[in-house]
Every structure is written in C-alpha cells, then in structure tokens.
C-alpha cells in the first residue's frame, strides 16, 4: 500500500541533495551545473557508482557508520539479522519448491541461528539504547518498544527452532507436508515462533521499518533525481497535468477556485488578477 502510494504520487519539483552518487563530481559533491554551458555537454551518469553507494548503505549502513557510530553497533547486527532471516525464509521457499539438499539444510540452519541471534541481540541493544539514552527515549513510543520486544522474542525463538535437533530438517519436512495439505504437528516452540513471526508480518506495513523500500524513493526519486526536464518528455507531460489541478488554499493572496497555472500567472489585487 505504502509503496503504491509513493510510486503513484504526482511528479514534484526538483529537490536535489548533494553529493549525488551518479555524478562524475561526486567525490567533492559536484554536479553537471559546474560545467560552463552545461546544457551543451553530454550528461554522464555513473550507474555503477549509484549501485555501489546503495550497496554500501544497505549492506554496511554506511550513513549510520559515518554519522552515528554508537547506534551502528546495535543497528548493524540488527539489520544483518533480519537480512539473514529473510534469506532463510526464501531458502525455505526453495526447499518447498523441491530444491532441498544437505548443503541447503546446513545453510538454512546457519542462517536461522545466526540471523535469529543477531536480530535478538540487535533489537535488545536498540531497546536498551532507546530506554537509556535520553535523546532516543523522548522520541520512542510504547509501540516502538513493543515492536522491539516482538523482534527480540522472534529472534530468540528462531535460534531455538533452527538450532534444535532435528531443527531445519524437521522444518523443511513440515513445510513440504504443509504444501501438500498434509497433517503437520509441530512442537510448541515452533508454533510460538511462527505465531510471533506472523504477528510481526501483520503489523510490519504500518511501522517505520518499511523504510527499507522507502529508501529507494528518498534517494532515487528525490535526492538523486537531478535530470533536467527537457531530457524527460514524460515528466513534462506529468507536470502539465499537475498544472491543471484545482487549487483550494484559503489565504487571500492565493485566490481560490483556479488551476495551478492560473494561480501562478495571476496575482489577486493586481490588474492581471482582476482580469
């Protein structure tokens, strides 16, 4: 829902923020506007540099490392725990699709145990920091704390499930059986782990944890979106459509009941505005 909302939002005015990763002058934060008669120059866009910058952000949380080192020690294991758990879940999907093997089982066991442990410890560290550090505490809500508690529990249960004997072997057998609509009997701890996981997935879309995909938009559609409009005719037509939106602001200087274009080209009280 939220991704759809962002993706379908109208075109906006440019709001670049430098450094922009795909610009050749990115090392000093430069843009193509540093060139004389920039409009005559071929636009160079380094897509690889953009991918590398995003990779550094996603894999190493580079921004947090540079600007908030203390938080990084909690946030980095937490994020990697979640990455491993997501990877393990996909791995289980592969098993259900018939791609199981002893190697896959070993990898899933490691992913589950390490991912669960990192999630649990990372969330615990974040909870401690959010409770002990005044600056973080002020802005932490009861729901934020509850979310971290859920993740501590989920991570811990995942360690137990993935690390117990017969562990991932039994999980895989159970899931395959489930796929075939067979009877599955699971130990209490497994049921609990799945219930907590389902609860987390249920409320995940309304949390701020969905910043993992929002980041695509904040970077690519806002900070790094420096393409001149004349290179993008589709955008020009979207702007044209936006200029026909009706404006409803109430302040006297705006003038209600007009389109954006009419509002921008007339000034209430002036000769033009009275026409």
């Amino acid at each position: 829902m939220r991704a759809f909302k962002y993706a379908t939002a109208p075109v906006h005015l440019r709001w670049d923020l430098y450094p922009v990763a795909h610009e050749p002058g990115r090392d000093h934060g430069g843009s193509y506007l540093e060139q004389k008669e920039w409009w005559t120059k071929k636009r160079e866009k380094d897509h690889l540099a953009e991918i590398l910058a995003m990779a550094a952000e996603i894999l190493f949380l580079e921004g947090v490392w540079k600007n908030n080192r203390r938080l990084w020690w909690a946030s980095f294991p937490f994020h990697w725990g979640l990455y491993l758990l997501v990877g393990t879940t996909f791995g289980l999907g592969a098993v259900m699709a018939g791609l199981g093997s002893p190697f896959v089982t070993a990898a899933l066991t490691a992913g589950g145990v390490i991912g669960g442990a990192l999630t649990c410890l990372g969330a615990l560290a974040l909870l401690v920091m959010r409770s002990a550090d005044r600056k973080l505490r002020i802005y932490t809500t009861p729901l934020d704390r509850a979310n971290l508690l859920v993740l501590i529990l989920f991570g811990g249960l995942t360690v137990v499930v993935a690390g117990s004997v017969p562990g991932m072997d039994a999980v895989q057998t159970g899931l395959v059986s489930l796929l075939k609509f067979g009877d599955v009997t699971v130990p209490l701890v497994w049921g609990l782990q799945m219930a907590v996981g389902a609860l987390f997935l249920f409320y995940l879309p309304v949390t701020r944890m969905v910043h993992f995909f929002a980041k695509y938009f904040t970077y690519h559609r806002v900070r790094w979106d420096d393409q001149p409009i004349e290179e993008n005719p589709k955008m020009a037509s979207r702007v044209q459509a936006a200029l026909d939106f009706g404006v409803d602001w109430s302040a006297d200087h705006v003038g209600r009941g007009k389109t954006w274009l009419e509002v921008a080209t007339t000034v209430p009280g002036s000769k033009e505005g009275e026409q």
Binding site: A9, L136, D144, R208, T218, R221
Partner: peptide, 15 residues
C-alpha cells in the same frame, strides 16, 4: 512525494 516520504519514514535515530 518528498513530504510523505519524510513524514512516514523517520526512524527517530537522531543521526
């Protein structure tokens, strides 16, 4: 678009 992105996604890390 930039506004709703910023309203929805602050994790309040205080960085």
């Amino acid at each position: 678009q930039p506004l709703i992105l910023s309203l929805d996604n602050c994790v309040k890390c205080q960085t």
